[in-house]
């Protein structure tokens, strides 16, 4: 049996499961390169305005450009709120589908960036409410460029049980800790700590005051602290 004409599949660059953090520390290069995974710079809003205007005029290809532009960051937002790749994929499709249908009514009072993030957060929160407390982790692989992340390596160096753990075990614990938060707390943690959004932007997206954002972050961090303390008390052998 032969299969002809298949396209080459890019080899995965995910780390093997049992890679120890100690290995990462020892193999980290002396010169710390700026990680490619810095929170994404906020995209140019003037370009968005033009693309939105063209979409409203009937240019479907302009909307395609917006999809391509916003898919990676919205994927990150939804994935970190759901910890499930398949659900994230479905939600992301629904978000753009809804945005495409609603864009004729978009009047530009907020930026497209804020608008589409609002749609994504709200659809995800609604989904999570329906999903309830029973969830299924379906985690993406960790990209190898984490080896160049200076701050992450520093954090793992300071805590002994974490240093000895598998990267995949740490990933699992972090996701479980996130899932223990309430959906709203997880949303602000995702936007602030993982996506790197400033408080002001988060407050515009969630339509709450900046004070509310700060206080949710405060309590969320407290909860995460206690969950991760359990990890410290029950380290992986």
């Amino acid at each position: 049996m032969t299969e002809a004409g298949l396209k080459d599949v890019n080899p995965s660059i995910a780390l093997p499961a049992a890679r120890r953090l100690t290995d990462l520390l020892s193999s980290a290069p002396e010169v710390h390169v700026k990680s490619k995974r810095e929170p994404m710079d906020k995209p140019r809003t003037d370009e968005d305005q033009e693309l939105v205007a063209r979409t409203q005029a009937g240019d479907a290809a302009a909307f395609d450009r917006l999809v391509v532009k916003y898919t990676p960051r919205l994927y990150g937002l939804i994935y970190n709120m759901t910890s499930n790749h398949e659900d994230t994929n479905d939600l992301l499709q629904d978000v753009f589908s809804k945005a495409y249908k609603a864009i004729r009514g978009f009047r530009g009072k907020s930026s497209f960036y804020t608008w589409i993030h609002s749609i994504a957060v709200n659809m995800t929160l609604n989904f999570l409410k329906k999903r309830g407390r029973r969830y299924q982790l379906s985690l993406d692989d960790v990209d190898a460029s984490i080896q160049n992340d200076k701050e992450f390596l520093e954090a793992t160096a300071t805590s002994s049980p974490v240093r000895e753990a598998d990267l995949s075990e740490l990933q699992k614990r972090l996701n479980e800790a996130m899932m223990k938060l309430s959906d709203e707390h997880r949303a602000v943690v995702t936007m602030f700590h993982i996506q790197g959004m400033p408080h002001a932007e988060i407050s515009k997206i969630l339509r709450v005051s900046e004070g509310t954002v700060r206080s949710r972050l405060f309590y969320a961090n407290r909860h995460l602290q206690s969950y991760l303390d359990e990890f410290r008390k029950n380290p992986v052998s």
Binding site: M1, T2, E3, A4, G5, L6
Partner: peptide, 8 residues
């Protein structure tokens, strides 16, 4: 014999 072939 059966071959699985991807059509072009």
């Amino acid at each position: 014999i059966t071959f699985d072939v991807q059509a072009d």
